[in-house]
Structure formats: structure tokens, C-alpha cells
């Protein structure tokens, strides 16, 4: 089996294994697995409204997945996408609420604010990694919680609406909402953001694969010493990589703030989109196109799962279990490789 085919088959096998184990869990618990999966399918694609919601969910997943994938490709693990997303969300909403501008300035400005906020939030871990060799995983985890508490505080203290625990609605001029899409999809919350996500994916592919800067970023991820020796500035590339990753995450926040919700609310816990982004990036093989495919799968699973308790009585958490299992199997792909090696050797004999 060629290497390329094998790399492609691992995510597919991981998804299948995840579904198999999920089915076993349902059977042990005495649920009707077929009813559950058909409810899942019709909850994602059964009506045009649901499909609109799937695409709506896919939008931040693509961006969060790109954020994780970009960092991965450059040798960093950005587990702080969640925090950068929350910060970007608030920044976008703040611009949306505080200014009164014509649409063609207001909307780009709000999106830009989210990107800058996310980038800045990731700048610090990048700097600490480059300057002090502090592991970015721990710093970004800690930054997630700082972001959560800080944004809650800012919303309560500086941007509260009369109703209390959330901001005012953003002005229509900053909104990503699309009456055209809404009408097309039976008034789902589908918005223009999906184009931003796709453009971001193309941008990532182009930057990494077609530019000198991208080559340097990847090179630093592969081997810092070799890159240093060949004259690249390793520290600069580490910081830059984190910032770009944070920009993607911040944009994911803008999708929620300007598109789906139109406000920012005080959060009791994380949105989960940032962590799901890790799953998306892993399954997508950390490549731009793979991330889009994985985001579609997870978006459909997430939205479709909401229909499962209604139609089949199976708790929607089952989908969370399946997603976790997929991450698990992709992470432990060494196991899949061993099994595949066994089989292919037998085939030769």
C-alpha cells in the first residue's frame, strides 16, 4: 500500500472505529442504534433548515481547525484556540456595539478587531516560547482561563445590556447575517462567515505551500537547529506562527459574535469550539482541505446530534463520545499502522 493511500486511510479507519465503538455503547445501553443514526442523519440533512445550521456550525469549526492545524504544521501545539476565540468574539462584538459606521467599513473593522485580538492573545505564548523556551501547551491552557474570566468581567463591568449577563446586540452594519441565506435555508442562522472561513483555508494553503515564509515556518517546525543553521530566524518564526494561528482563532470568534449570535454573553464555561478544533485539525491531517472536510463531518455530527434525543431517545452526548473516540484513534494511529502492516505482509505471502 502506498504511503499516500495509507495516510488517507488512517482518518477514515479512525472515524469507522469511533462509530463502531459508539454503536457498541448504544447497544450495551439498550438503545436502538439504527434509529439513533437515522435521527442523526435527518437532524443534519433531513431539512434545509438543519443543513443551514450544519454549515453555520462548520464555519467556526473550519477556522478553529485551521488555527490548531497551522500551529501543528509549524511545530507548535496551540491548545489555547478556545481562549483566543473568546477574546476575538468579544473584540468583534465590542466594535459592533461601540461604533456607528457604514457597513463597508464597520463589518471589516469588526472582523479585523477579532483577528487582532486573537493574534495578540496568541502572541504572548509565542513570545514566551521563543524568548524563555516555556512550553506553549501550558501557557495557552492558562491563557484560556484568563480569557474566560477577563471577558466575563469586561462584559459585566463595561458592556452590559439592560437584561444583564450579555452585551447589547451589535449594529446591523457590523453583522454577518444574511437575509438571502436565511430565506434559502428556512430561516436558519447561516451567515456570510462561511466565505471568510473558506478564504482563510485557501490563505493557509497558499502561505504554507507556496511562499518562502511558509517554507520557513514549516522548516522551523521540523527542525529548529537545521533552520537556524541555514540562516532562518527561529524565534521570529515561532512568534509569527502563534500569531497567525491566533488570528484564525480570533476569526472563529468573530463568526460567533457577528454571525451566529450577534452579541457576547457571560460564559459559565468554555464554548468547546476551540477544543473541537483540535479534533478537526487532527482528523483533517493538519492540511487546509482536510480541515474543511473534517469540519463538515464534525459540524454535521454536532448539529445532527441535537435531533437524536427527540427522535430516538438517545442522549446527544453520544456524539461527543464518538468525536472523542475519533481523536483517540487518530492520536493512537500507531496502533492502526501496526495492524495494517500485519495485513499487508500477509497479502504479500
Amino acid at each position: 500500500m502506498s504511503n499516500r493511500l495509507r495516510n488517507l486511510s488512517i482518518p477514515i479507519i479512525a472515524v469507522l472505529l469511533g462509530v463502531v465503538v459508539g454503536t457498541i455503547i448504544m447497544l450495551i445501553s439498550g438503545y436502538d442504534a439504527i434509529a439513533a443514526y437515522s435521527a442523526l442523519w435527518s437532524g443534519a440533512f433531513g431539512e434545509v433548515y438543519y443543513t443551514g445550521e450544519v454549515v453555520r456550525q462548520v464555519t467556526p469549526y473550519i477556522l478553529a481547525g485551521l488555527a490548531v492545524a497551522f500551529a501543528f504544521r509549524t511545530g507548535l501545539f496551540n491548545i489555547g484556540v478556545e481562549g483566543q476565540l473568546i477574546v476575538g468574539w468579544l473584540a468583534a462584538v465590542w466594535v459592533g456595539v461601540a461604533f456607528d459606521l457604514p457597513r463597508f467599513i464597520h463589518l471589516p473593522l469588526a472582523v479585523l478587531a477579532a483577528a487582532v485580538a486573537g493574534g495578540l492573545w496568541a502572541f504572548l505564548p509565542g513570545l514566551l516560547k521563543a524568548r524563555f523556551r516555556v512550553h506553549e501547551v501550558i501557557v495557552t491552557i492558562m491563557m484560556n482561563y484568563v480569557a474566560l474570566h477577563l471577558t466575563n468581567y469586561i462584559i459585566r463591568r463595561y458592556l452590559p445590556s439592560p437584561s444583564g449577563d450579555r452585551t447589547e446586540k451589535i449594529h446591523a452594519t457590523a453583522s454577518l447575517r444574511s437575509p438571502f441565506f436565511e430565506e434559502l435555508t428556512d430561516f436558519s442562522r447561516l451567515h456570510w462567515g462561511i466565505f471568510i472561513a473558506i478564504i482563510a483555508a485557501i490563505f493557509m494553503w497558499f502561505l504554507l505551500e507556496k511562499t518562502t515564509r511558509g517554507f520557513e515556518l514549516r522548516s522551523v517546525g521540523f527542525n529548529q537547529h537545521a533552520s537556524q543553521y541555514s540562516g532562518m530566524n527561529v524565534n521570529k518564526n515561532i512568534v509569527l506562527s502563534m500569531v497567525i494561528s491566533g488570528v484564525f482563532a480570533g476569526l472563529a470568534g468573530a463568526m460567533e459574535g457577528l454571525g451566529t449570535f450577534g452579541y457576547a454573553a457571560v460564559k459559565g464555561g468554555f464554548t468547546g469550539v476551540g477544543f473541537d478544533g483540535i479534533a478537526v485539525a487532527l482528523l483533517g491531517g493538519n492540511a487546509a482541505f482536510g480541515v474543511i472536510l473534517a469540519a463538515i463531518l464534525f459540524g454535521a455530527l454536532k448539529v445532527g446530534s441535537l435531533n437524536m434525543p427527540l427522535e430516538s431517545g438517545v442522549p446527544n452526548e453520544l456524539v461527543d463520545i464518538i468525536i472523542a473516540l475519533i481523536v483517540f484513534f487518530v492520536a493512537a494511529s500507531y496502533m492502526i499502522r501496526i495492524v495494517m502492516d500485519r495485513f499487508s505482509k500477509k497479502g504479500v505471502k
Partner: peptide
């Protein structure tokens, strides 16, 4: 780190299920 993230996702999903 990835395996740990999977543990976190799995545990909360399984417990709520």
C-alpha cells in the same frame, strides 16, 4: 497532549451520557 484532550472530551461525554 492529544491523548489527554481525548480523555477530557470522552469523560464528560460519557459521564453525561
Amino acid at each position: 497532549t492529544v491523548s489527554g484532550v481525548a480523555i477530557n472530551l470522552l469523560s464528560i461525554g460519557l459521564a453525561l451520557f
